[in-house]
Amino acid sequence: MKIKKLDLNEFFSVLETIPYVLVKKSKSFPDYHTGQDADIFCYNKREVVRKILGVGNGYLSDGYVIKTEGISPDHCQVDFVHNNVLVFKFDIFTAFPEYEKLSIKNHYFNSIIEGAVGVKCKFRDKKYHLYVPSSVDDLLIRYFEYLEYYDRRPDKLKHLDYILNAIEKTGKMRIGFFDKLHIYTEFPESNMSTSRYKYGFKIKNFLHWLVPLRKRFESLKHSMKFFFK
């Protein structure tokens, strides 16, 4: 049975009135392949979820099931599933995902939404704006993903090629990229301050003192034994 395609233009046309950005927009938008996802950065995930569900209601009679899950206070997912197969996923964020390898300043998230660029699109002959991050922000978001996952997910290498291609094209882009990178990112806190390290250090320190103490106690025991003999 042929599955009715979701019209992504319909979903994003209703989001036009609220602040959001569609991150890492695929070149084939509004077309998609089964299992693809769309990352949305926004301020109010309830509002975005409601709008998506409002459009999604229209697909229920075509056999779709909508699965919604709050992953964390800043992240939720809305999945469109057909015959137990994930067709499309909306990943909605109200803050940057937790990265292990780099630390991004919180206000950069807001800066991305505020600096959104409207791309003209059409839904049923009606024009609307699809909001995406500015080109520099788009490159930075891809760079963050590359840094975080390049050793675990080879598919993320595509981001580096994309960034290098874009940076090489104009000098202005290169300056903007490095400027924002330095303003909004910092090195993650050193391992030295993690609790695991702290407790490890304390145990090691304790053992360091325990060994000579034990030796002294043994010699004392020995001398007392000798004395009372």
């Binding site: 569900l53 999604g56 209601n57 229920l60 009679s61 099931v65 909508i66 699965k67 919604t68 899950e69 709050g70």
Partner: peptide, 8 residues
């Protein structure tokens, strides 16, 4: 309710 499914 953190996890739910909408279905017909």
């Amino acid at each position: 309710i953190n996890k739910f499914t909408i279905k017909q």
